[in-house]
């Protein structure tokens, strides 16, 4: 599999699995405006998935469509960050996961849109970056407001941060594929995204009166197909119909 195909899978699996998680909130959000915003976020992420997985199929060159890749791979072939498959938990946990991801996703797409030497990657990033900018604006604003809200909202946001924190380091690890992509100018060196992320996170959390956890341990494995127990359950629901009725067209 080419590095480009692998990269498109990593990007598309992130948006697919996070979009799935966010969509689980439908009808259950704390206020109507959040129901709308969450559905909208999930919709953006699924739209981005169609583009990334479409590119992955094209780069693979075996005739697989975005739907084939979403619905007919098992967990070990998924390339998303472990962070995005983490359970929704309370709304604070969902929001913090979104913020930690957005703070990586938006600068990543910005880099790709401006610098990627692969035209198709740059074009997808160009479309997705505007949506990601809005996601980041919304999630950082809410993290600030809830972090610096009541004692309870502060505690929940701090707990959520601790819950996800050790799943953020994976965003910045590099393997041979990343090095190949960086050398070819297709994608940035993941580690190069870290200082910007640290600065943004530090700024927002400070305004939110939340403290940055000191634990620098990082769970890893998602980008090479070693996932948490949660992913299998996500796929069991998501892939049920095409798996149960393989001859059907929907």
């Amino acid at each position: 599999m080419s590095a480009l195909c692998e990269f498109a899978l990593r990007m598309g699996d992130n948006t697919l699995i996070l979009g799935h998680r966010v969509s689980e909130w439908c009808g259950h959000a704390p206020v109507l405006e959040e129901d709308i915003a969450l559905a909208n976020t999930a919709l953006d992420l699924i739209g981005q998935t169609q583009m990334w997985l479409g590119l992955a199929g094209e780069a693979e060159g075996e005739g697989r469509t975005a739907d084939d890749l979403a619905y007919k791979r098992d967990a070990w072939d998924f390339r998303n960050l472990l962070l995005v498959e983490r359970p929704n938990g309370d709304f604070g946990q969902t929001l913090m996961r979104q913020f930690l991801f957005d703070a990586w996703h938006h600068p990543m797409l910005t880099w790709l849109a401006e610098n990627s030497k692969d035209q198709r990657v740059a074009e997808i990033a160009e479309k997705a970056v505007r949506e990601a900018a809005y996601h980041l604006e919304r999630s950082s604003d809410l993290v600030i407001r809830l972090g610096d809200g009541t004692d309870e909202s502060h505690r929940r946001m701090q707990d959520a941060l601790a819950y996800h924190w050790t799943y953020t380091g994976e965003m910045f690890e590099a393997d041979a594929i990343d090095r190949e992509l960086a050398d070819a100018g297709i994608a940035p060196d993941p580690a190069a995204m870290k200082p910007g992320w640290d600065a943004l996170i530090g700024e927002v959390l400070a305004e939110a009166t939340l403290s940055v956890p000191e634990n620098d341990f990082a769970h890893k494995g998602g980008r090479r197909g070693q996932h948490t127990e949660h992913l299998g359950h996500i796929l069991a629901a998501m892939q049920f119909l095409p798996r149960a009725y393989p001859d059907a067209r929907w």
Partner: peptide, 12 residues
């Protein structure tokens, strides 16, 4: 379950 969220926003 969303009460803490709404209260948090009002407090902020």
């Amino acid at each position: 379950d969303g009460a803490w969220y709404r209260d948090g926003l009002v407090a902020h």
